[in-house]
Nucleic acid binder design. Structure first.
Lengths: 231, 231
DNA sequence: GACTGGATCTCGTAC
DNA sequence: GTACGAGGTCCAGTC
């Protein structure tokens, strides 16, 4: 990764035309050749950029550009499309390169895993007297998201999805079939819990005697104190 | 703007939970307090970030963290929501700060200006015998995008929009009223040109005797050679 | 490979 | 302020 702080102007021609007047900015050249132009505010999104695969070439400024104060011109061309990013550099204030190595990448515990954790902690949301047996209860065909017991002590298998679709109902149905063959567990009833349940999924679930529960993620997060552990 | 290259792990808790295992990354702290975490590939989007308004505080690692090799912990808290980004730094390999000053921001010559330029160059798209008089033809209430003449030599005012909405038709109507009072120009007919024209706008335009022309941006760009000038 | 839908979407603009 | 639509959308999944 190469970090350059430079006074520069930038032109982009591709799906649109855009221009950045002369100012001091960060030029970020990544190992894959991609280039990002960042200003000192307005986070997240670069002012301008070129996505990989692309090729950076440095060329000498022509006479006109030299007179205008340009010392160096970067041309970043996309390898497949005609997109072109031209960075006209007037002055380089900082230039350093760094070997970062491979990045293992982002792990999104994401919403489904988080919902599972929250619901396990707030299992009483399913009804009075409900108690958690365990998360990720293992069966021969895979783990059930949550195994609980109701007020009468009967087993309840819970399948959690962010968006409740037919697939999720089918999945829960397979678990229920299998678990109901186990005399130690049977009878096992099913709960299909999701932030949003599609009408088709709801119909199918009801048809199979599976209860549907819509989860209010924000409210559950509000009740939860786990993210305060980071403080 | 502060640039830090560091071996670090990152945790985010907010609208979702996410974790970045220990690796070497770029930490970018902007003047507005926002923080971006970038890896050396996969351009454009940071691996993780915190948007302004937010507050960065540096805290000492606790005993457990120190034993794990953490030398410094950054906590970036959003000012309004409960979003929190925690960066556990194991080693700082580079650290520099730079005053960038204000950025004039991106000028999207964008599609409308580009369409205007292209249509001026390809004015015959409006019909055989059409000729360009000038772009940005000035009137008392503002510039008309394009003034042209048709095959008979009569004046034609062209309003160009990316998306043709009712507003654009109203705008062109005002220009036409004004220009038709000028005996040197009158009679002036109107053309409403856009990549996409909404049904309501089309109806209104036809009702006022204004012709609608849908522009094929890609095709016009294909005929154009101006963006090749950048090469 | 094309297609589809989600996103810590972001970013405008109209209302 | 909120609501709606577009984005150089990006991105990951599926067909």
């Amino acid at each position: 990764m190469r970090l350059v702080i430079a006074r520069c102007s930038v032109d982009y021609a591709g799906r649109l035309s855009a221009h950045l007047p002369l100012a001091t900015r960060l030029l970020l050249v990544k190992a894959d050749g991609s280039v990002l132009v960042h200003s000192d505010s307005l986070s997240y999104k670069p002012l301008n950029w070129m996505s990989p695969p692309c090729v950076l070439s440095t060329v000498e400024p022509d006479e006109e550009q030299t007179e205008a104060g340009v010392t160096e011109v970067w041309k970043v061309a996309h390898a497949k499309t005609a997109d072109l990013l031209v960075i006209s550099i007037h002055e380089i204030l900082h230039d350093s390169s760094h070997a970062l190595g491979h990045d293992p990448g982002l792990q999104k515990d994401g919403v489904e895993a988080h919902l599972q954790k929250l619901l396990a902690e707030q299992i009483e949301l399913l009804g009075d007297g409900y108690r958690l047996v365990r998360r990720e209860y293992m069966t021969a065909i895979g783990p059930v998201d949550i195994l609980a017991t109701d007020a009468a002590g009967a087993s309840v298998a819970v399948e959690i999805k962010r968006r409740g679709d037919i697939d999720g109902v089918e999945q829960l149905t397979r678990y229920l079939e299998l678990m109901n063959r186990d005399p130690l567990l049977a009878p096992v009833s099913g709960v299909f819990a999701a932030q949003e349940i599609k009408p088709q999924a709801r119909t199918l679930a009801h048809d199979r005697g599976i209860r549907c529960v819509v989860l209010d993620y924000d409210e559950m997060r509000g009740l939860d104190d786990s993210h305060s552990r980071l403080f």
